Amino acid sequence: MTKTVGVIGGMGPAATLDFLVKLHHATGAVEESDHLRVITDNNPRHADRNAAMVADGPSPAGLLAETARGLAAAGAEFLVMPCNAAHSWAVDIIAATPLPFVSMIDVAVATVVAAVPEARTVGLLAVEATQASRIYHNGFEAAGIAVIAPDMAAFMPLIYAVKRGDTGPAVRAAMAAQAQLLVDAGADVILAACTEVPLVFAPGDIAAPVVSATDALVQATLAAARSLSG
């Protein structure tokens, strides 16, 4: 048996669905019953993480903690959250329940280090809240890897376009261009560190290594569900 996954979702909803689909396909199930039990709260009512971090907007901490408690009450045995920026409030989630919490940030950093061991600079395709809180900077700097960020004035409109449902060719081309600018500025590897990014950008879109934090969390979720079983 495997442990039941609790997913703190909705940030945004399409990104959560992308995570769930990837988790489903990565399970390698032969029978229907081989799949994980996943309890998901795909709630888009969380306060805007960027406004909370950089513009003195309302904090998402309270609802994140409430969601964690709800998932625990529903039967989740560990928690994951397919939103990078919301990890800026991970301490509130961890304090809300005794359940293990699998950090997307930690597993993405570890994946980059393992996948591109020679990397000395990572290009961080991440929103303002993630950049400002330095949750990735701290992890990469501890590993001796520098972080460079895209131009937020160009990058943020792309993220909001994806949240509105625009995943067309123009947005895809613009996201790839943002990644290429980071490579041109010295990035050895690109980390898709916003869960909207993989909806319009994938490895192979540029001629440089690309790691998806969503994919890293998928693999960590599978490992946690299986290793925690007993």
Results as ranks from 00 to 15, higher is better:
111 T>A: 15
29 A>L: 14
224 A>Y: 12
118 E>I: 14
108 A>C: 09
4 T>Q: 02
187 A>G: 00
22 K>S: 15
1 M>H: 01
187 A>H: 01
40 T>L: 07
182 L>P: 05
98 P>D: 11
139 G>N: 08
183 V>K: 02
47 A>M: 09
42 N>H: 07
204 G>Q: 08
208 A>S: 08
18 D>C: 14
113 V>H: 12
29 A>F: 14
2 T>D: 10
103 S>M: 05
223 A>D: 14
2 T>G: 01
196 E>G: 08
113 V>T: 15
55 A>S: 10
194 C>I: 02
128 E>R: 07
80 V>W: 00
168 G>Y: 01
57 G>N: 00
14 A>K: 09
91 V>L: 14
171 V>T: 08
205 D>W: 12
206 I>G: 05
63 L>Q: 09
46 H>F: 15
41 D>A: 11
54 V>K: 09
92 D>S: 09
92 D>R: 06
29 A>W: 15
226 R>W: 13
122 V>Q: 03
111 T>S: 15
208 A>W: 13
72 A>S: 06
161 A>I: 11
18 D>P: 02
61 A>L: 12
196 E>P: 03
100 P>S: 04
107 V>H: 03
210 V>H: 02
163 K>N: 04
167 T>A: 13
210 V>T: 05
101 F>T: 01
156 M>A: 15
216 A>H: 02
81 M>E: 02
210 V>S: 03
220 A>R: 00
220 A>Y: 01
139 G>F: 04
48 D>P: 05
21 V>P: 03
6 G>C: 10
39 I>F: 04
62 G>R: 14
62 G>I: 07
59 S>W: 11
109 V>T: 12
116 V>S: 00
205 D>K: 11
31 E>T: 13
22 K>D: 14
17 L>A: 15
199 L>I: 08
197 V>D: 03
179 A>H: 06
62 G>F: 08
158 L>M: 09
97 T>S: 02
116 V>Y: 02
89 W>F: 06
15 A>N: 00
153 A>R: 11
170 A>R: 14
207 A>V: 04
40 T>M: 10
10 G>Q: 08
214 T>P: 13
57 G>M: 01
94 I>W: 06
161 A>K: 08
79 L>D: 04
13 P>C: 10
50 N>S: 11
220 A>K: 00
219 Q>Y: 13
116 V>W: 05
12 G>T: 03
227 S>K: 13
167 T>F: 10
4 T>D: 04
67 T>G: 05
138 N>H: 14
175 M>E: 00
112 V>W: 05
99 L>Q: 03
178 Q>S: 15
99 L>H: 02
199 L>R: 01
40 T>R: 09
3 K>E: 06
189 V>G: 00
194 C>H: 07
205 D>L: 00
37 R>Y: 03
221 T>P: 03
205 D>R: 07
155 F>M: 07
74 A>K: 00
119 A>C: 13
13 P>K: 06
59 S>M: 13
183 V>C: 05
168 G>D: 09
27 T>K: 12
144 G>V: 12
19 F>M: 01
169 P>H: 12
216 A>D: 08
111 T>P: 09
170 A>L: 08
161 A>P: 07
48 D>I: 06
200 V>K: 01
79 L>Q: 01
210 V>I: 04
7 V>C: 09
74 A>W: 10
52 A>D: 02
135 I>W: 07
82 P>V: 07
83 C>K: 00
171 V>I: 08
73 A>D: 06
55 A>D: 08
7 V>H: 02
1 M>A: 12
163 K>F: 06
146 A>T: 12
33 S>R: 15
188 D>M: 04
